[in-house]
Amino acid sequence: MLLEVKDLRVYYGKIEALRGISLQVDAGEIVCLIGANGAGKTTTLKTISGLRKVSHGSVTFKGGDITSMPGHQRVTLGLCQSPEGRGIFPGMTVMENLEMGAYSRKKKESEIIAADFERVFGLFPRLSERRKQVAGTMSGGEQQMIAIGRALMAAPDLLLLDEPSMGLAPKLVTQIFEIIREINSQGTTVLLVEQNATQALSVSNRAYVLETGEITRSAPASELLNDDFIRVAYLGE
């Protein structure tokens, strides 16, 4: 098991945003977390990344307890997130943004890092053309590519993606999901949060359904795709 979250409770002041959720991600999987607005999906990812304090429960990564480890150290362990709303560094160029992804990697890895740049440019040729452009001036879709590419530059074993398709045109959405599948086939495990549930489920192996801070379903993705209740509640049918 790569990641294990056990009975996690997280508060914002007095509001309990996560009410004891448990989930697991195995190496090699794409696991998807779906749920309505405000269900706690972003909070879950932020907590796994170390941006939110845990009140109860634990987060285990590669067999080690990381519940109270500072967020920046988790990146070195092999966990990197592309945050909701992209969160690119607007004043930096495309290249500098990607270099930020490799921030905590050692200098002596420089050859592997160079190969990872090529991998990212292979996945996103558009970024290769725009290396020197200031990221804040790029389109929404291009910024999403930067955010995903930047997280890949950390060479994570587990990639956390928070709504990578948000605000993108349908054609680009399809392309992003294809890229997620490709990233996974190159050996990176993915934990994906999505509103675009149909497409997310169709690239995922397994899925969890989150409702107001609690996991209400856990099943193979294909099962949820064919589930009448899920179809009505989350797939807009």
């Binding site: 920046h72 969160g87 690119i88 560094f89 607007p90 930096m92 930020m100 921030y103």
Partner: peptide, 21 residues
């Protein structure tokens, strides 16, 4: 220096990239 600029532009994301704030 990039780390400094990253924290100035977006501290949470800087942390997600492994920057020790």
């Amino acid at each position: 220096g990039r780390g400094i600029r990253a924290v100035a532009q977006d501290p949470s994301t800087a942390m997600l990239m492994g920057v020790n704030i």
